[in-house]
């Protein structure tokens, strides 16, 4: 099970994401934004950070990186893709996921442990969780407010494509407390908080983020 982790200029969380993949039992493979080669990976993670300095819009420039052309093609054929934080922004800019992530409603950059509820466990990245399972993982971003039009929101809700919601007060103004969504097929998932920082109680608030990285193994075994 080879899971590619893409590094763009300005990516921060690629090492933690790679470590989380290995911790979960997979084999992480480093991918570089300028490479037109996915190195035969079975899945791809777009990690968090500030790719291209968040210039123009978060994720707007990364979307056109050479490696993304291959990721978009592979995702459309069903390859599992997880975008975390900046990775989620890249997936929205790439139109692999609907909506957009905008400035937090109170303008603050948030960095804290956040409780979320898993609301869909049928995607490639959430099958290790129980529906309604509550996990605490770090949330750290300045532009994490999920926005989309009413029609898109209604479709996401009716199709069960909201995969996680914030618990408690809305941290950033996201519509319907959305912390993560999937595409219709369930292979592409975007998530604002950071499961890769919560795989080991020694270094994170919990080990509850590990489920995202073990889910992908289940998806491959099936």
């Amino acid at each position: 099970m080879r899971v590619g982790v893409i590094t763009f200029p300005g990516t921060l969380d690629d090492r933690d994401a790679a470590r989380a993949v290995n911790f979960g039992g997979g084999e992480s493979v480093a991918l570089w934004h300028a490479d037109a080669d996915l190195k035969n990976v079975d899945a791809v993670i777009l990690p968090g950070g500030f790719s291209y300095g968040d210039y123009l819009r978060c994720g707007a420039i990364s979307r056109f990186a050479p490696v993304m052309k291959l990721v978009i093609e592979a995702a459309e054929k069903g390859m599992p893709v997880l975008g975390i934080c900046n990775g989620f922004q890249v997936l929205c800019e790439s139109h692999l996921l609907p909506g957009a992530l905008t400035r937090n409603s109170d303008l603050h950059f948030l960095c804290r442990d956040q409780e979320i509820e898993i609301t869909n466990n049928t995607t490639a990245w959430t099958s290790s969780f129980a529906i309604g399972e509550k996990i605490t993982i770090p949330l750290k971003n300045g532009e994490g407010s999920f926005q989309c039009d009413d029609q898109t929101l209604a479709a996401l809700e009716s199709e069960g494509r909201v995969i996680a919601r914030y618990i408690g007060e809305n941290p950033n103004g996201s519509r319907n407390l959305i912390a993560g969504i999937s595409n219709a097929r369930g292979n592409v998932v975007g998530l604002m908080p950071h499961p890769e920082h919560a795989i080991d109680p020694l270094t994170g608030p919990s080990a509850q983020g590990l489920g995202f990285f073990t889910s992908i193994l289940n998806a491959m075994v099936k």
């Binding site: 905008t102 400035r103 937090n104 409603s105 109170d106 303008l107 407010s145 926005q147 039009d149 103004g173």
Partner: peptide, 10 residues
């Protein structure tokens, strides 16, 4: 410009 219905915190 942000669409009118999109919140503009700035």
């Amino acid at each position: 410009m942000l669409k009118p219905e999109i919140l503009d915190p700035q």
